[in-house]
């Protein structure tokens, strides 16, 4: 494993398998009455969140706590960050406090990369701007493998605003790395023009793609005003690219519906579709904790089997 996890380009296919296998061994911890192993006892993990993200922050916090690490949450509101302290100064402060790992979420692409120049600890990218969100991609890969038994050859459609989606980038890079067959689907204005160079296919016609998918992965549509220049209306978006009941019928049997959350019900996904059995959105959340445990554990070099409960990974 690389020293940091900044991008899906930092991990090899072998690393991915190791991460998913390790996560599988940690998955069981979450089902116990006492959901804790001592693997990272005495280590300090800082959650440095410059952008609100309750679910990702809680997921990382739980992951670190279940490994018995000390966890510090550092959010932009109500801290020195909101007093105008620079990212570098904040990084140096955390460094001085002995952070072993820093989990960073930031609205600026590349900030986790920059952070590595200023700190000695391990840096985990929990989502940076419109760049990447590798832990989301890994939990999605985990969920696909768990449900469908493989990654190689899987046909995955990623639908929506790929241009601005860090999830789409990380997931595309990860799936291509694992030998899956990825098709990006969305309005032409929201697909990066050079995306085929990622090794993916591009389609502007969801109906045409659906029957050939093992996984239909829906991205959250940003409906802020500045995004609306890319398509005429939310209504037209939902008509062309929203997953509704009749479109679900085009999906082959046994295929999955996924979404990184939070969902815009009625826009990219109809409410009753989100609640169908093949929709595994809650599994994604649960698996996220195990995958993040695995990442913290592997990056921080915890001694595996500490306490003997964590399985065989």
């Amino acid at each position: 494993m690389n020293e940091h996890l900044l991008s899906m380009h930092d991990v090899t296919a072998d690393d991915v398998i190791r991460i998913l296998d390790t996560a599988e061994s940690f998955r069981e911890v979450g089902t116990r009455v006492i959901k804790k192993v001592p693997a990272l006892r005495g280590r300090t993990v800082v959650n440095l969140f410059y952008e609100n993200s309750t679910r990702t922050r809680i997921s990382f916090e739980l992951a670190a706590k279940r490994l018995s690490a000390d966890v510090i949450n550092f959010s932009s509101g109500g801290s020195s960050v909101s007093k105008g302290e620079s990212l570098k100064d904040t990084a140096l402060t955390l460094q001085a406090m002995g952070a072993d790992a820093i989990v960073i979420r930031h609205s600026s692409s590349g900030s986790p990369f920059q952070l590595t120049r200023w700190v000695r600890g391990h840096v985990l990218n929990a989502g940076d701007g419109t760049h990447e969100h590798p832990t989301q991609a890994l939990l999605d890969l985990y969920t696909m493998r768990e449900r469908l038994g493989r990654l190689e050859g899987l046909r995955v459609g990623i639908v929506g605003d790929v241009l601005h989606s860090r999830v789409a980038r990380s997931l595309s890079f990860g799936l291509v790395k694992m030998g899956a067959d990825v098709t990006l689907v969305g309005p032409a204005t929201l697909i990066p023009p050079d995306a085929p160079q990622w090794g993916v296919q591009v389609s502007y016609d969801l109906d045409e793609v659906l029957s050939k998918l093992d996984v239909c992965y829906l991205l959250r549509v940003q409906t802020e005003r500045q995004r609306l220049e890319y398509f005429p209306s939310v209504r037209e978006y939902a008509r062309l690219f929203g997953l509704n009941r009749s479109r679900v019928r085009l999906l082959p049997e046994g295929s999955l519906i996924m979404h990184p959350g939070p969902m815009n019900r009625g826009v990219e996904i109809d409410s009753d579709v989100a609640d169908l059995p093949q929709s595994v959105i809650e599994d994604q959340v649960t698996n996220g904790i195990a995958v993040r445990m695995a990442l913290l554990y592997l990056l921080l070099g915890g001694r595996h089997g500490d306490g003997g409960e964590a399985g065989d990974g």
């Binding site: 692409s109 590349g110 940076d128 701007g129 419109t130 760049h131 990447e132 023009p193 995306a195």
Partner: peptide
Amino acid sequence: QQMHEGISSSSLGLA
């Protein structure tokens, strides 16, 4: 914009 538009900007997630 943050850089030239092309495969690099797409991959780096920079406008």
